[in-house]
Nucleic acid binder design. Structure first.
Lengths: 225, 225
DNA sequence: AATTTCACCGATAGTACTATCGGTGAAATT
DNA sequence: AATTTCACCGATAGTACTATCGGTGAAATT
């Protein structure tokens, strides 16, 4: 085992990567309040003052973190849509539409946790990133629902589609968190629930756009058993 | 205009109330990171050091805040269920089940905002409070869904009901936040969306418990237009 | 009327963190 | 070989906040 000799710039880049990695871990485990230059530098194995060789301040590191996280999320989404399109039948496509985002979240759970925290925190530097991410997820879901057969023709239906997508997105996040916390061990079951939720909503949209699915319609009330 | 003369204990209690009120406002506007004894005391009109006459430390104030917030939320829930039960027909009850929680949230939006923030933040003193509140809301929704006609007979169905309730709850919070942010002006429309989402899920439950609603069933796929 | 209580005050020691600065030695360049 | 560059270091000034302490005057009690 001979240690590879690194050039100066390679060594610097390695330290930078270590800082970013350390920051992500601390952010996930202790939250934004626990993220200090002291802890990040120590975790990366350098002196606190050397932090400033790599970043102007903690804000800048957080900005980089948000950019890289955003890139990873976008890649996840592209991959998810590609795979969902590949599913053979309608049934499979519908189900994959909900299972794949759940899997994507579980592959990078820290990104969802950080996003959920930052989203409503007025003191968070990542607030904008979190809001943009949430909006992107919502639009992603809206596009997926549209791909399942529904097209919004007027103002009202577009708003409804957006609301449904936002609701489904929130439910997806909630079930993914529940899975990560160990309450819902089976991801497929979670995908089933999301499919069922969306089915009811799609029925509402079909009805309002002039078509009625068999047994559907907004005036219907489920019979008491 | 004669100023009422207060006894010493009345004056102390008034100051205490001012501190709690100030803390709630600062917590909502600036987040937990912005909540300091300096700011709270100043907003309540006393010296920073006098903060400790009323509370051992900031933790204790947050504990009191969580207790009072919890009480307010429980009262809201009781009221909501009472009103939902009073609705005349099945259709109205189903709809009220979703509209009333939305209204309850909008009456105390700061409590939801604070809860959503604290829930996933490992550094938050209010984390336990937020998690308990979320669990209470979920159980509340599960009970509401059960009251709409579904009873979970076995292990699997109980877990499914819990997942549906958690999903619906997350969607309710998301749409309420969207309403508070001005994106969804009409609360009734949000209630419609939630009703439609739940209808699909109830159908899934009916199916798995051996009954199939007209046109429903988990094997069905909506036709492409 | 004399005494006690206590909510509040200003001052301050202690803690945690940020961000700068001059110095150092090995890598890179000449 | 001589010189320059620069990633990193320890020390430290500055900032923000917590929590304690002795003092004060008006309310409460005797």
């Amino acid at each position: 085992m001979t240690s590879t000799p690194l050039t100066r710039s390679e060594a610097k880049d390695l330290t930078r990567r270590k800082l970013i990695r350390a920051a992500l871990t601390i952010l996930d485990e202790e939250g934004e309040a626990g993220l200090t230059t002291v802890k990040v530098a120590k975790a990366a194995g350098i002196a606190q003052s050397s932090f400033y060789v790599h970043f102007k301040d903690m804000q800048e590191l957080l900005r980089v973190l948000a950019e890289e996280g955003g890139e990873r999320l976008r890649a996840s989404m592209r991959e998810a849509r590609r795979r969902a399109r590949e599913a053979p039948g309608d049934l499979e496509r519908h189900r994959e539409t909900f299972r794949i985002p759940l899997e994507a979240i579980c592959r990078h759970p820290e990104l969802l946790r950080i996003q959920l925290r930052a989203r409503h925190d007025p003191s968070s530097s990542l607030r904008d990133f979190a809001r943009e991410t949430a909006a992107a997820y919502r639009d992603h879901h809206a596009a997926d629902l549209a791909a399942l057969g529904y097209t919004a023709d007027d103002e009202r239906d577009r708003r409804r589609l957006e609301m449904i997508a936002e609701g489904i997105n929130a439910a997806t996040n909630a079930l993914a968190m529940g899975h990560l916390e160990g309450r819902y061990p089976d991801l497929d079951e979670a995908a089933d629930i999301l499919t069922a939720l969306s089915r009811g909503a799609l029925r509402l949209l079909r009805h309002t756009s002039g078509r009625t699915a068999p047994g559907g319609g907004s005036g219907e009330v489920p019979p008491e058993p």
